[in-house]
Design a protein around this nucleic acid. Sequence first.
DNA 1: AGTATCCTGGAA
DNA 2: TTCCAGGATACT
Length: 286
Amino acid sequence: MPELPEVETIRLGLQKHLVGHKIDEVEVRDKKLSFGEKKAVVSAKVKAVRRAGKGLIIDLDNGYSIAIHIKLTGQLVYRDDKTKKIKPSEKYVDGLPSKFTRVIFHLDKSAFLFFNDVRRFAWMKVVKTQEVQSLPFFQELGPEPPVTGSISNKLTLEEFNNIASKANMPIKVLLMDQKKISGVGNIYANDALFDAGIDPRRKAKELKSEEIKKLYESVIKVLKKGLEEQGATEINFVNALGEAGSYQDYFLVYGREGEKCLECGSLIKKVKLAGRGTYFCERCQK
DNA sequence: AGTATCCTGGAA
DNA sequence: TTCCAGGATACT
């Protein structure tokens, strides 16, 4: 789902297209969304777009920011006269107001930013820039594997070793715990464990240090691959121009239950860990 | 540490 | 028609 590579892909697109625009008007169409003070963003200019874990921060030039989490199905899509020509992915729920469009930013130079979300788990909140880090989500974020584009602290191998040695939970659950390690979700956790040859059900604290080292490298490797492919379009992830990613064409084990292991040909198994679908090869992952 | 919850479209 | 997926959180 939207994880570090997907959110970073959006950030890069917004950094390129959104920065410099003035916000003329904001339409909040979903009453469930506690957007905050609309007045605080109207007539401000976008200064920068930052990321921490799976969270995004749009900084304005008036001391305010818009903190965002797209959760499972959120989309942030920029449109202007030039980018209108780009044919969006079929996964793009709708560029123009649709029933899934929760917020519309009317920008200067006839541009728009659409915030779409089918399942309504995503959130978007106006806060003072200084207070972004004190929002519970950002405050509690753990360090992030060293990939790119983030303001979070970088997870070192030593730290990963330390965190794992104290965690009495399956290693896969640890990888996905944003308070311990940020940015990794279900897709990349499954694929990293396959790449490292480690059974996702094993207790984190029981892993040997060479296994932790291998896993550390595998996590970085799959995240980088995800970034290169501009993310995975599983449900309806799209980038800031409405285009799909392609990491779904390179899934190692995620979503491949019953299919052949890419290494040994035996069938990929699926179990549940902490309520989440967990895919692995019993023969390759020990 | 595990489980229910939010929400909805799409799969079974 | 029912069930399932999933990020993060609130419970137990």
